[in-house]
Design a protein around this nucleic acid. Sequence first.
DNA 1: GTTGAAAGCTGTTGAAT
DNA 2: ATTCAACAGCTTTCAAC
Lengths: 161, 161
Amino acid sequence: MSETPNLDRTDRRILEALQRDARLPMRELASIAGAAPSTCSERVRRLESRGVITGFHTAVDLGALGRSVEAMVFTQVRPLSRDLIDQFHSDALAMPEVMAVFVLAGGDDFLLHVGVRDVAALHSFLVDNLSSRREVVQFRSSIVYGHGRKEALEDLTESSR
Amino acid sequence: MSETPNLDRTDRRILEALQRDARLPMRELASIAGAAPSTCSERVRRLESRGVITGFHTAVDLGALGRSVEAMVFTQVRPLSRDLIDQFHSDALAMPEVMAVFVLAGGDDFLLHVGVRDVAALHSFLVDNLSSRREVVQFRSSIVYGHGRKEALEDLTESSR
DNA sequence: GTTGAAAGCTGTTGAAT
DNA sequence: ATTCAACAGCTTTCAAC
């Protein structure tokens, strides 16, 4: 969204802290960022309006949501037109089992991150929702045994070093 | 974490709303969930202590963090021992470019979700951080052209239907 | 752009149901 | 376990630098 965000040290500290805890009180955030609470409040609001901060989300345990089995489904669709890609993208994301969709270049066309109740539900999903679609030429699924997500992404911009 | 979370309608409404906006005021959350603000407050706290809510996070635009290029890197490591898997998992997650790590079954062993400045940086990462490692037998990378994440994951438990 | 103090609002606490 | 009302604490506003 933003081309030259030009984040300064304060912004980067705010973003790092807020990625770890979106509900961090302004007072604490201020002491971490090294600024006054009112300044932080203003900074956060500007980061939102600039499109740097895109949202505040709550992470939920997948097991608690009846999604103990996770899998990555690599999918090829044909013909590879813009319309078909967009259509499949939104269709896939609308499926209850699909948690995220990635459009890839080379090899497979899509990567679907799915979360389901058990292996039987995964099989049902593959057979009923993917095999049945005419545009789906091929797919292959891998069970996810574990995953790790970085708590806070650092700014890799040169100027920030 | 929790085996029988047994989420009721109120819990599910709270989780859905909070996944979309972790900073939703208790008053609004209460009206959405159909309960008193104090009840919501208690519910949220219990969901946290039960391990259903695992965190509150802020989403940041990848371009703003100097990560305009995203890629999925499928990696095979050998020998496939528990120790080596755990080691590579934590090593990979410690790399600045790596945003998430998935341990897969079948085909490839790992899937690395990376975010870098440009294609040159991706190449550097592959050559310097992966090729150079002795345990890495093979890898293949796909540029991510786009992605979509579900705003709120619904509960797929039978009893919740 | 930043700060400090006042104002307004929000979240939580406790007694009662 | 939930609710209402009062409190305490916070965030935000605004004038000043």
